[in-house]
């Protein structure tokens, strides 16, 4: 798809705002609609757009499959690990009140905990969506120019 100049330039312009918006949804999820799941999907959409327009081989150079798989596992690990850390601090599993610096304001710890686990969710969803796309797309021949 080398001579689709407009498509390539426009997607180059679109990808950074998509990624930025995903980060906004990720870290603003406790104030507005959104959260880790939606952010992960939007972040993956940015990379998938790149993969569609420039080809999966380019996408693989940006995101090696081994890294994607590691990120998927890391997300779950961050989430489950948060629970383990709260247990070590003497609280129940996944009781984020453990992270409050001042026990009188347990809700502060809840804020920290939720931001961390949402990050874990976002990481896993992003990695899994990208991995599924790569698994599907690498089975198909590159899209011919006539098919667009």
């Amino acid at each position: 798809m080398h001579h689709h100049l407009i498509l390539r330039i426009v997607s180059k312009f679109l990808i950074p705002p998509i990624l930025l918006y995903a980060l906004y949804v990720q870290f603003h999820g406790d104030f507005g609609p959104g959260g880790g799941f939606q952010a992960g999907v939007i972040f993956a959409a940015g990379f998938i757009l790149y993969g569609i327009v420039y080809g999966v081989s380019h996408l693989r150079r940006v995101l090696p499959p081994a890294l994607v798989r590691a990120l998927a596992a890391l997300g779950v690990l961050i989430y489950a690990g948060t629970g383990v850390v709260s247990m070590f601090l003497g609280f129940n599993y996944l009781d984020y009140a453990a992270f409050a610096s001042d026990p009188a304001h347990a809700s502060h710890g809840q804020h920290y905990g939720i931001i961390v686990i949402e990050f874990g969710v976002g990481l896993t969803v992003f990695a899994v969506m990208t991995a599924i796309f790569m698994a599907f797309a690498s089975r198909a021949p590159e899209i011919k120019d006539t098919d667009w």
Partner: peptide, 28 residues
């Protein structure tokens, strides 16, 4: 307990934290 502006995120992340962990594991 939590007091974040988006109550949905608060409930899903904290009160229902085990559910959300399970969902993440399902996606994985």
């Amino acid at each position: 307990d939590i007091d974040m502006p988006n109550i949905v995120t608060g409930i899903l992340g904290s009160y229902r934290g085990f559910d959300t962990l399970g969902e993440t594991a399902v996606v994985f």
